[in-house]
Design a protein around this nucleic acid. Structure first.
Lengths: 336, 336
DNA sequence: AGTTTTAGGTCAAACGATTGACCATGCGTT
DNA sequence: AACGCATGGTCAATCGTTTGACCTAAAACT
């Protein structure tokens, strides 16, 4: 219960705190300033006393937390798991600890920004930033935190941004449906906040207009959580409509999978009765029956995000911020 | 970039650092020792200079992080989202920040334990603790961290534990299948490490033995990640077998859902050809076609975990540790 | 007038580690 | 004998807040 301090260790080993610190951190560019004998003695005492260095004191003195934060705006998103594993691995390699924060409400976001500014971590990787304000992140970066974002709406002043071609690819997806002769195309997706699924929805609308295809409010159903539940009900409503669409574009694969269920549960066939296109190309997308045609990156690759983050932490990044674009592709499987 | 310190604020406002601190933290049981005039002046300076208190220094001095950690052994588990929201809300209410840690490998677990011992958070809520060692957590608790676990294998020396009746309920589930006349019952689940799905698997085996029902290795398929993928393949193998089971008990609902897909994709019917029982009663379980019969809590309720954690943080908990058991029930829907 | 109270602040000692600048030997050189 | 220089450590300042103890002047009592 009572914590052991470095002074207690020092006293027990008959050396100064400096010596203990030197031994435990062993920096001092190459040269060992401590004899092997002393080192052994100190290490023994450390083990005996169960000494655990106080990280907080170290952070205060060194002015670095050696910690990074992965900010997942929402849990329950398919690739969170992969992303966090990738970041975890990189963190381990570089000797950083990883903590995860979540928060989708504006209030929560302020809270996390505040925590970060007060010194929660040296760097942050923001993923899936609906609602996000670029200026907030720039301010955070100015306060000395390395900021990297995975986003299509941030433009990256003093922060690094990785984005995707989701708008163009969404157009391509809907145009693909058009090219297959579909005239009545529905839409299902997360509610399109300016920073959320908006681009995909806009792309969908634009293609319909461009080809003079019919559109009505009932054809686009937006739900507000990632739950399968809501997407399923959206689909039910869409296919139960007297003028049932012959194809549905879903703003995310999870919704697309629910849609396939709903269609099949209604006794219809995919793609003969209703064709479905998703977005994201999550691993599960190829496991549906029929396998899902979707748009997304050919392979899930977060390396650029990680590269940006750590190069910035090491001070090797340009101050202005960088932008990298991941090319999405139309991945044709059997649901169209 | 340059951080403002409390002394700079004090100097600019013509007061001492103590005064600034007093104003910003405003404790001092009720009585305001600071005049309104001074308070206003200081607050103005704080705003002008954009002063952000250094949390690290505060933690060092106060010996409390005002932070709690939610340790999700794996992301991508259905109720993570709900759990984290519930904990987040409670944390907000009590004025704590929440951070999330993950890690399923033994190595990662040591890392997180180490971080916690070095002062990452005041308390930790451990969820889904495959691989966990009770002693590790007890040691952590002894070092002054409030520890609460959601687990069936931890017995809780100096830590609080919430567990479920998963063993008994699993028995009940399999017995239910038996009572419906099923003789050949298969099993699909996460690989049963001692701390993982083990109890469910053991319950399954015990019931089979008790009723002298046949068992062979091929009848129990264990996969090692929560991916839908693996469970789907397990199911395919099971139903393709010449002596196809007429019922399958799945150690988790996600696997059960994949199983239903696999069965239907193979052109068979649920429950007429193969009955399916899951475990966990996740929200999606009622949305399958047919709705899934499963075992689980009647309603997802994490309040006891949260109560335990915060009462311990407030020093209102007995040192020995408490145990609470959540009763699972058999929830009959249409998949049997 | 002398004493107590109170309002409104300030002082200075922590909290526990890190680190640049010293220091004391002993040894090898010239 | 004087000097330089490794070798192996120690000193003391510092990181930025918080907080129990102390201080001062004015008001309020006897």
């Amino acid at each position: 219960m009572k914590k052991t301090t470095i002074s207690q260790v020092a006293a027990a080993a008959g050396v100064s705190p400096s010596t203990v610190s030197l031994i435990l951190n062993g920096r001092r560019s190459g040269d060992d300033r401590i004899s092997d004998e002393t080192r052994q003695r100190v290490l023994t005492v450390v083990a005996d006393l169960g000494y655990v260095p106080n990280q907080t004191a170290r952070i205060l003195r060194r002015k670095a937390t050696e910690r990074i934060c992965l900010w997942l705006v929402r849990l329950g998103v398919p690739y969170n798991d992969l992303l966090s594993n990738a970041v975890q691995e990189a963190a381990d390699q570089h000797g950083y600890s990883l903590i995860i924060c979540t928060g989708s409400t504006a209030e929560r976001q302020k809270q996390v920004l505040w925590d970060l500014r007060r010194g929660l971590a040296d760097g942050v990787l923001v993923a899936g930033p609906d609602l996000f304000d670029n200026d907030d992140l720039t301010d955070l970066a100015r306060s000395g935190v390395a900021v990297v974002a995975y986003s299509n709406t941030l433009y990256g002043k003093e922060i690094d941004v990785v984005r995707t071609t989701e708008y163009d690819s969404s157009q391509e997806a809907v145009e693909f449906l058009v090219s297959k002769g579909h005239k009545r195309i529905g839409y299902i997706g997360l509610v399109s906040t300016p920073h959320g699924a908006y681009p995909r929805f806009v792309a969908y609308r634009n293609v319909l207009m461009q080809y003079h295809l019919p559109f009505a409010d009932w054809m686009a159903c937006q739900h507000d959580t990632v739950s399968r539940d809501q997407a399923y009900r959206c689909s039910q409503a869409l296919i139960a409509h007297p003028e049932r669409p012959t194809a549905i574009f879903c703003s995310n694969d999870l919704a697309a999978i629910s849609t396939i269920w709903a269609i099949r549960d209604a006794g219809l066939r995919v793609p003969e009765d209703v064709a479905v296109v998703g977005a994201g190309n999550i691993p599960d997308a190829s496991l549906t029956n029929p396998p899902l045609t979707t748009i997304g990156p050919p392979t899930l690759d977060f390396s650029m995000l990680i590269h940006y983050l750590f190069s910035r932490l090491l001070g090797e990044a340009p101050a202005e911020g960088r932008i990298h674009t991941i090319q999405w592709q139309l991945i044709q499987r059997a649901s169209v």
